[in-house]
């Protein structure tokens, strides 16, 4: 019985990025109606979790909102595992504040100063004497990692580490001096009452771009945009193939678009 238990070919285990989990669940729901014999179990927890689970053999498909890093790649090599990846959508990170703050757009440099904790007050940006409250993600989140790398900073130790995108939005709705970052898909679906999305411009002369602007994302013009990856072991391609095929199908692409992401064409 124990031996038969270790070989489970009827369930595809997908783990990883919280950004992608909602999308993955919706894909799995529709997938089930076309492939009733094949189960898909999905867990979130962050991109690092997905990649680690893939390495540990507790996942078949790792959702990741960042590309795999050198340290992880080294560990896969040590274990003699070959990897393949698949980009199934584009995501844009939205920086969100309370709608009562008098600020509409921001530069990456200003964001870096705020998020690393050197700019502790909103007065220089908005003229209002309010303390900055940072709502971020846990260190295992791909979003956290992406923002950190893109800005080249370490986050302030007083940044609150929230468990998910939605918790950040919830907190920002009731915090008139908070700032947080979430996937653009969530702003569209989580409701925008009491909050606003900042547009980002790189230099004084360049145009400020909104993460909700599909055309600009498609052109790759938004500063904080990234591809969403799915990693799998080369050896288990046959097992995960049905779900990858479904993601590429017309109905799969429609689900991706409806969920607030930008399909890769």
């Amino acid at each position: 019985m124990l031996v038969s238990c270790s070989a489970d070919n009827t369930t595809i285990k997908i783990k990883g990025s919280d950004t992608e989990v909602n999308l993955a669940v919706q894909l799995a729901e529709s997938f089930h109606s076309t492939n009733p014999g094949l189960f898909v179990s999905i867990s979130g927890g962050g991109s690092g979790l997905g990649i680690a689970s893939l390495m540990n053999g507790t996942a078949d498909l790792a959702n990741s909102s960042r590309s795999i890093n050198d340290l992880e790649l080294k560990l896969f090599h040590q274990r003699g595992i070959n990897l393949d990846s698949f980009i199934f959508a584009q995501d844009a990170i939205a920086f969100v504040v309370s709608s009562s703050l008098t600020i509409d757009s921001i530069t990456p440099a200003e964001l870096a100063a705020i998020l690393k904790g050197s700019l502790k007050n909103w007065s220089s940006l908005t003229g209002k004497d309010l303390p900055v409250n940072i709502y971020g993600r846990q260190s295992n989140s791909g979003t956290h990692d992406f923002v950190k790398k893109k800005l080249g900073i370490d986050f302030s130790p007083h940044a609150k580490e929230m468990n998910g995108n939605a918790q950040i939005l919830e907190a920002l709705k009731s915090d008139n001096s908070g700032i947080g970052y979430v996937g653009a898909g969530y702003v569209i679906h989580g409701g925008s009452k009491g909050i606003k999305v900042l547009t980002v411009y790189e230099t004084k002369n360049s145009k400020a771009v909104s993460p909700l602007d599909a055309a600009m994302i498609a052109a790759g013009k938004y500063y904080f945009q990234r591809p969403l990856f799915q990693y799998y072991k080369t050896g288990s391609f046959e097992k995960v193939k049905p779900i990858l095929d479904f993601e590429k199908s017309t109905s799969g692409q429609k689900i991706i678009r409806d969920a607030g992401y930008y399909p890769v064409n």
């Binding site: 238990c5 489970d8 369930t11 799995a28 009733p36 189960f39 999905i42 867990s43």
Partner: peptide
């Protein structure tokens, strides 16, 4: 797991 798209039928599933 967060989600499984059906009812668990065996002991080796999440």
């Amino acid at each position: 797991a967060f989600y499984i798209n059906g009812l668990a039928t065996s002991f080796n599933q999440e």
